[in-house]
Amino acid sequence: MIRSFFLSPEQQQSRGLSLTEIGRVRDSGQGLLWVVLDRPDQAELLTVLHDTFQFHPLSIEDCGNEGYQTPKVDDYGEYIFLISHALLPQNQDLADLEMRELDLYLGRNYVVSIYRSAEMPPVERVWNRLEKDDRLFKNGADFLCHALLDALVDDYMPLIDSMDDEIEWLEDKVLEKPSPETLQRILALKHATLSLRRVIGPEREVVNRLSRDEFDLIAPNHRIYFRDIYDHLVRIQDLSESVRDIVSGTLDIYLSATSNRLNEVMKALTIVSTIFLPLSFIAGVYGMNFRYFPEINWQYGYLYVWLLFAVIVIAMLLFFKKRGWF
């Protein structure tokens, strides 16, 4: 699906432009044009990106790639091509964390956004704000690009907060009673931090390049807005590093607690086995089938053996208690 928004130099707004009108606006270099490609097929990609905007084939190939691509920014002179990743809100479950790619073209008077997921919350929020916030289209294409990236980065913070809450719960659960379910949640949280760090690091470098004077398409007075996004990403990356360290510590605590529980079980079994060793020896001695056995005809022999068993058990328990073994 193709959506478009255009603000003319006379401040007149229009939506749903045809491809011919989009090409005319692009060639004129006037006004502000925003084109959104929502789950485009290959034909739409080629028609809009190649035929209408005449973008470089390598960038178009990146837009059609279904696999994971590292966030990056490429300068093609007349326009900038960006790859970023957004967090889908319905997948903020740490066991099923999922990122979706958002591709952006930034030109003199246009922004083209492409995504292939069922929804892209940052794009939808900015699109809905067009009618309420005129800064989005009155400050140029670079400010609109900033708004999209800012909305994308803002979705990372709730995930970090949920990670903090999850860690607090896991630490209490690990100390209280570690279980396989706890281990699964720890590993899910660790996987989520790794997935987040894989995106945030390159994303930060992309925004860092946009915040410097490297690209002429970004106005000097708008670079401070990209620096603000960069500061947010630095903070998010620092928090994710802290979360990763805490998760690793929690995993170590879980393994240590599990090992201690196993040691307690083995100690109890060892004590029981040690107590039964002399009892088994005595029972084996008196169970031998010799013809002449001094105690075999003793009237109190059976009681004597049980008293001997009791004395040995009590003596060993007192010995273990004195040594602090239980």
Rank of each mutant, 00 (worst) to 15 (best):
S4A: 02
L7A: 09
L7S: 10
Q11D: 14
Q11A: 14
Q12G: 00
R15P: 01
G16S: 00
S18N: 01
E21Y: 08
R26D: 07
D27Y: 03
G29S: 14
G29L: 05
L32C: 12
L32N: 07
W34Q: 03
L37W: 15
R39A: 10
T47Y: 04
L49Q: 11
L49W: 02
L49A: 13
L49D: 11
T52H: 03
T52K: 00
F55T: 01
P57G: 02
T70L: 13
T70P: 03
D75F: 12
E78L: 09
I83T: 14
S84R: 04
A86R: 01
Q90P: 00
N91C: 01
N91I: 02
L94W: 07
A95T: 06
M99Q: 04
R100P: 01
L106Y: 04
G107S: 05
Y110D: 10
V111Y: 04
S113K: 09
Y115T: 06
E119S: 15
E119R: 14
M120A: 10
W127P: 01
E131N: 12
E131Y: 06
E131P: 00
D134K: 12
K138W: 01
K138E: 07
A141W: 06
L148N: 11
D155P: 00
D155E: 13
D155K: 15
Y156P: 08
M157A: 15
L159T: 14
D164C: 09
D165Y: 07
D165L: 07
E166S: 15
L170E: 03
E171L: 02
K173L: 03
L175N: 07
E176K: 08
E176H: 08
K177D: 10
P178K: 08
L183E: 09
R185V: 09
I186T: 05
L187M: 14
K190F: 05
H191A: 00
L194R: 08
L196D: 05
I200F: 12
G201H: 00
G201V: 11
N208S: 14
N208Y: 10
S211C: 06
F215A: 01
F215C: 01
L217A: 05
I224F: 06
Y230R: 01
Y230G: 01
D231T: 04
H232L: 07
L233R: 01
V234D: 02
Q237I: 08
S240C: 15
Y254G: 03
L255K: 04
A257V: 12
A257C: 06
T258A: 15
N260E: 13
N263V: 13
V265Q: 03
K267S: 15
L269T: 14
I271M: 15
I271K: 13
S273M: 05
F276S: 05
P278S: 11
G284W: 11
Y286Q: 04
G287S: 13
G287I: 05
N289H: 07
N297R: 13
W298I: 00
Q299L: 12
G301Q: 12
Y302W: 05
Y302A: 06
L303N: 02
L303K: 03
W306P: 04
W306M: 07
L307M: 06
A310M: 07
I312R: 13
I314D: 03
I314C: 04
I314M: 10
M316K: 03
M316T: 03
L318A: 12
F319R: 14
F319A: 14
F320Q: 10
K321Y: 09
W325G: 07
